[in-house]
Design a protein around this nucleic acid. Structure first.
Lengths: 206, 206
DNA sequence: CGCGTAAGCGGGGTAAAGTCCGCTTATGTC
DNA sequence: GACATAAGCGGACTTTACCCCGCTTACGCG
């Protein structure tokens, strides 16, 4: 049983729809490699694919959606390695090792697809994104902690990203839960993370 | 001197510019509370502030920039508490405690400003955001690890957010560094995080 | 094989974002 | 207080995302 799990669209598309999606993705990649992300407009993509604008929007919903779709599509190979490739990325290794392996793989994947990832994430660059308050504050505190072997700058980013809006909003989107309970969970989760990372790990073993 | 540190714009604005920024923020809040985020268009904001559209864009660069600015402005109070409020949020407590306190404060801040945060982050909702591959995979592995006292769902989100595009892209934006070194750092950082969290913490103490 | 129907398609229309560049005005200097 | 100059301003203009809704077509069923 390779059990492909449920990582496919739960609702299979009609044959022509699938064909058009493929055509659109291909054209998108062409435009991208020919003239960069800015040249990839919905109109142009539609026309050059020989399809209607409506179709493009039906498929991807949003301009960012196209880049997201491209990214997802490129991610398929990685997905396959995880499901049925060799360890430690694939099954068979210890969970911790699979976790670190997955992280490395994903980081490499993102750097290889930097331009697409960038286009999928940021709309336009609103100018100088100075590091926000969170990062400055967290960095200072981490430095005071003086964690041996830690890359403070990287760790700062990692912790800060756990306090960014998208994560919390995603949790809040969970249906039929009451807010206060969710935020409480989130706060406890944060405390857990901090304690683990900045860890009084040795104290218990004494 | 409460030493305001360097958390202000490093380049002071002209008096009229400052006044206009304030006017714009106020109007933005009015529009927001009167008719919701969707009603806040650049044109409307400009007109209702009695200013030109160019001014709005000069100030905020982008529609999302307005919401970001609103958020930043609302965050000022929190900022002040951190710099000179009572512990554990303010100075005087142990760094770890300040970290957890900061996290809690920020989480509460975000929930209180949910609508603005949402508008600042997501452009439009591209439809059903099913949880991406990262989360599914990480969640499975975390469950296998069976960490005592951990909220797996929350922890999943936290770890996944450390592998999301924005964080890596931000690091890659650092000037005059070579890519491979940065990604290597990032990979090491990830390994560090995973080991800390999923911790073979007791093993060293044995 | 023909029919019903729901999914998919098309492309014109609208409103909003973001750009440009000449004009205005704050601010520092003599 | 007049001047020089650089920052700020305005609003017409262009481009583009995104919506709408009648038409077309794939595909399951009898």
């Amino acid at each position: 049983m390779s059990s492909p799990l449920s990582w496919g669209p739960p609702h299979p598309e009609r044959a022509d729809a699938a064909r058009n999606r493929q055509r659109l993705l291909t054209t998108a990649r062409e435009l991208l490699s020919e003239a960069g992300p800015d040249s990839l407009t919905m109109d142009r993509l539609a026309e050059r694919s020989g399809l209607g604008k409506g179709t493009v929007f039906r498929r991807f919903g949003t301009r960012a959606g196209i880049f997201q779709a491209l990214l997802d599509d490129n991610e398929r190979a990685l997905q396959h390695e995880i499901l049925s490739g060799p360890p430690p990325l694939g099954p068979g290794a210890a969970p911790v090792d699979r976790l670190t392996a997955y992280g490395s793989a994903r980081i490499r994947f993102l750097t290889e697809n930097e331009d697409i990832a960038r286009a999928a994430t940021e709309g336009r660059r609103p100018g100088g994104r100075r590091p926000p308050m969170s990062q400055i504050h967290i960095r200072v505190l981490l430095r005071e902690l003086d964690l041996p072997g830690a890359d403070v700058d990287v760790l700062t980013g990692q912790l800060a990203s756990a306090l960014e809006a998208p994560l919390l909003l995603q949790l809040l989107d969970a249906p039929e839960q009451d807010r206060s309970a969710l935020t409480a969970r989130f706060e406890v989760g944060w405390r857990y993370l901090v304690e683990r990372v900045c860890g009084s790990t040795g104290t218990t073993a004494g």
